[in-house]
Design a protein around this nucleic acid. Structure first.
Lengths: 346, 346
DNA sequence: ATGAAAGCGCTAACAT
DNA sequence: ATGTTAGCGCTTTCAT
């Protein structure tokens, strides 16, 4: 049996409640007893029992983290470890625990979340993805349970605390970069259409095109999974167009790897034949050949802010929903270059 | 206030203990009351409170997961999400929660683990890495706290439940593959020397060399971080040797990407000029150019087995320490090929 | 500033 | 098979 608050009280010659007050750093406690109690705690190797605290407190000091379903291969994206780092960092500072929740299927995921909230296991929840019409979001909303999203909610945007980049602007600027480089046929390769992030970046792509007076063509937009076969089809479709693109905006660095792979297999060199830009700046993007010009979305910060935002909300339920925008910057490497002068048309 | 066991008891017209028994699926309980109670629970939307259970039970139904320090860039290795998937899967089945523990520094990590075990927040812990003389392992051992390791402990191997591949054999077989392909100058590129996995795979490399009567040369072994600069130096060193290797055994797929990158920059083509093989078979290894011949270590299974092993130990402390070996297999892709006939020496 | 005591919601003897 | 009851370890009024 571990040492309890009573044992400490006995040794220190005070009441259990006094020990409790010392733990909580209660103001009205004399420096003398405080010292006495702390000494006893140290000597006896006392450590508070989390469950007992939670029970008495009705607060678990832990927050749930929901990753996308692992059916989704995107789980393997280094994006996640990186957000986790950010979350972890503030969790550590604020003495919160992180409780993980994944699942093979959407059903499993929802079950996991329900379990967490019903059982009072967590004080709040962070969603590491955002998709349209998410049952988990609906559940959390219905329960009036504190949560925040990394990304942009598909709906009820200003009822939900979330931290995001300005993905529309990011999409616009990175596309504009290609345009400034002289490209006029620019395609967009994105993931699933119901991921909000895809939509936002595509919207930016559209805006840049329009601003430059370039057409926004249906056949230049491909949506696919990032895995090999997906990237493959995307590239084949694009290259078989009568006027194949010379610039590519790819929604994710990982996807870019697959795309570049295919491009090479089709005999196209990056950036000589086609320029490619993408998003996220995971560490991999400097290991590729060529290293990627990409939007650094500051993943770590997204995590930090999401955790801070949630904890604020947990501590004070009346805290209003916030939208936190993490700045991005474009990292110029060598996957994009000036469009080569086209051979003069006949 | 949420509905409690007492409320349910009242409505169902039974004692709280009966309700508790129904929850625990106690054998000695009549089907009639069982049904009655379940009905009441459902109607009232009852859900057990986890903290209360933990407190009364002295068991938290959750297991801690320790990732490597995030200072270590290896955290971004897709290896981790993949083990997590495995852990998650059995956690879900067995109704355990996963509590995450990372940290920027080794000190933070240890603090996190201490917090977990002292506060009774977890019933057991899984370590997702293994290095020599790990303070966390020492702490856990000293506390006699249930834990298991994904990988091989550096020490006290048969006191510690762990799940691992036979990395020596894997190293040997993959090296032998290169030898069978006609390579005679084969180098080894590994990560930090105090990661057990590196040492094992290198040992296998050595064995294969010796068995084939090939020399085991100091200058053919390079240890480095997998990040760009590391891979760069490794490759430069190797290529500047009087007899540069034509075969490379690289300890991790991710590292291979950096290595191939450098190789290309140095004007060496894979596999025409140098063959490369590596380990892990993360999904990325089929997206690279060329796709990697690599050892599939079945990461997901490692996770599954680690969780199962730990839970067995948690449920019955007298359970002996187990060593669980997950089979590997070699996935042949195109980063390794037969050694080209060398130009006849003068 | 500190102590006494009543819970927090659940489980586990011990009764019956 | 089910009810009674005493905790599990901590917090928090309410006294003093």
């Amino acid at each position: 049996m571990a040492v309890t608050i009573k044992d400490v009280a006995k040794v220190a010659g005070v009441a259990p409640s006094t020990v409790s007050r010392v733990i909580a750093d209660h103001p009205r406690i004399s420096p003398a007893t405080k010292k006495k109690v702390k000494k006893a705690m140290k000597e006896m190797g006392y450590h508070p029992n989390a469950s007992a605290r939670s029970l008495a407190n009705r607060s678990s000091q832990s927050i749930g983290v929901v990753m996308p379903s692992s059916a989704d291969k995107s789980l393997q994206n280094p994006f996640f470890p990186e957000v986790l780092r950010g979350l972890s960092s503030v969790a550590h500072q604020t003495d919160y625990s992180l409780v993980l929740c994944t699942g093979e299927t959407d059903k499993e995921m929802l079950e996991g979340v329900e379990r967490m909230v019903y059982s009072n296991r967590t004080d709040g929840i962070i969603l590491l993805y955002s998709q349209v019409d998410d049952p988990i979001v609906n559940f959390l909303l219905a329960q009036d349970f504190p949560f925040s999203i990394v990304g942009k909610p598909s709906d009820r945007v200003d009822e939900i605390t979330h931290v995001d980049n300005d993905n529309v602007r990011a999409g616009k600027e990175i596309t504009k970069h290609l345009i400034d480089l002289g490209h006029e046929c620019i395609a967009f390769i994105g993931g699933s259409m119901d991921r909000v992030v895809t939509m936002d970046r595509m919207r930016g792509y559209q805006l840049a095109l329009e601003e430059a007076g370039l057409p926004y063509l249906e056949e230049y937009r491909v949506h696919t999974e990032f895995l090999k076969s997906g990237g493959q089809r995307a590239v084949e479709e694009l290259l078989s167009l009568p006027e194949p693109p010379t610039g590519l905006v790819v929604v994710d660095d990982l996807m870019s790897i697959g795309v570049m792979n295919m491009l090479e297999e089709c005999g196209k060199r990056v950036p000589e034949d086609v320029s490619l830009v993408s998003f996220n700046n995971v560490y991999l993007s400097e290991l590729t050949r060529p290293p990627l010009t990409t939007v650094d979305i500051n993943i770590y910060d997204l995590g930090v802010q999401a955790a801070k935002g949630l904890i604020a909300k947990v501590k004070d339920k009346s805290e209003p929903a916030k939208r936190i925008i993490v700045p991005f910057d474009i990292v110029h490497r060598s996957s994009a270059k000036e469009k080569e002068a086209t051979s003069p048309s006949p």
